[in-house]
Amino acid sequence: MSIEKVRAFFAARGRGGDVLEFPVSSATVELAAQAVGVIPARIAKTLSFKSPEGCVLIVMAGDARIDNRKF
């Protein structure tokens, strides 16, 4: 999904100001934390897994670790 589509989606729901862009990379938890000026624990990261029952989406603290085999 393009950033324009994301902005339009949020704007249509009155949340246009919720999309943040940075002049530096925010591709990793560490880089995102530096860009925002917070500790990595304050960054939410999203992991997705495919299982026989369907897809699983996990949102967790940026400094948390997960055992991929469990999912």
Rank of each mutant, 00 (worst) to 15 (best):
M1S: 14
S2P: 05
S2E: 08
I3Y: 07
I3Q: 14
I3N: 11
E4F: 12
K5W: 01
V6E: 05
V6M: 06
R7T: 13
A8M: 07
A8G: 10
F9I: 01
F9E: 03
F10T: 07
F10P: 06
F10N: 08
A11R: 10
A11H: 09
A12I: 02
A12M: 07
R13Q: 04
G14Y: 09
G14Q: 02
R15I: 06
R15V: 03
G16L: 00
G16F: 02
G16Q: 05
G16C: 00
G17N: 10
D18A: 11
V19A: 08
V19M: 13
V19R: 10
L20T: 03
L20Q: 12
L20H: 14
E21D: 07
E21A: 14
E21V: 14
E21Q: 14
F22V: 04
F22Q: 10
P23T: 08
P23N: 11
P23A: 06
V24W: 03
V24R: 15
V24S: 13
S25E: 02
A27T: 10
A27M: 02
A27H: 08
V29D: 03
V29C: 11
E30T: 15
L31C: 04
L31A: 12
L31F: 15
A32G: 12
A32L: 03
A33G: 06
A33C: 02
Q34W: 05
A35K: 10
A35G: 11
V36Y: 13
V36M: 06
V36E: 03
V36R: 14
G37E: 05
G37P: 07
V38N: 07
V38H: 10
I39H: 12
I39W: 05
R42N: 02
R42Y: 00
R42L: 00
R42A: 10
I43W: 13
I43K: 08
I43Y: 13
A44N: 04
K45Y: 09
T46Q: 08
L47D: 03
S48H: 14
F49Y: 13
F49G: 08
K50R: 15
K50F: 01
S51T: 15
P52K: 05
P52F: 03
E53W: 04
E53P: 04
G54T: 01
C55I: 02
C55H: 14
C55T: 08
V56N: 02
V56Y: 08
L57M: 07
L57E: 09
L57Y: 15
I58L: 10
V59A: 04
V59T: 15
V59L: 05
M60R: 11
A61C: 02
A61I: 00
A61R: 15
G62C: 00
G62P: 11
D63T: 01
R65E: 01
I66E: 06
D67A: 12
D67K: 14
D67Y: 12
K70D: 03
K70F: 09
F71G: 06
F71W: 09
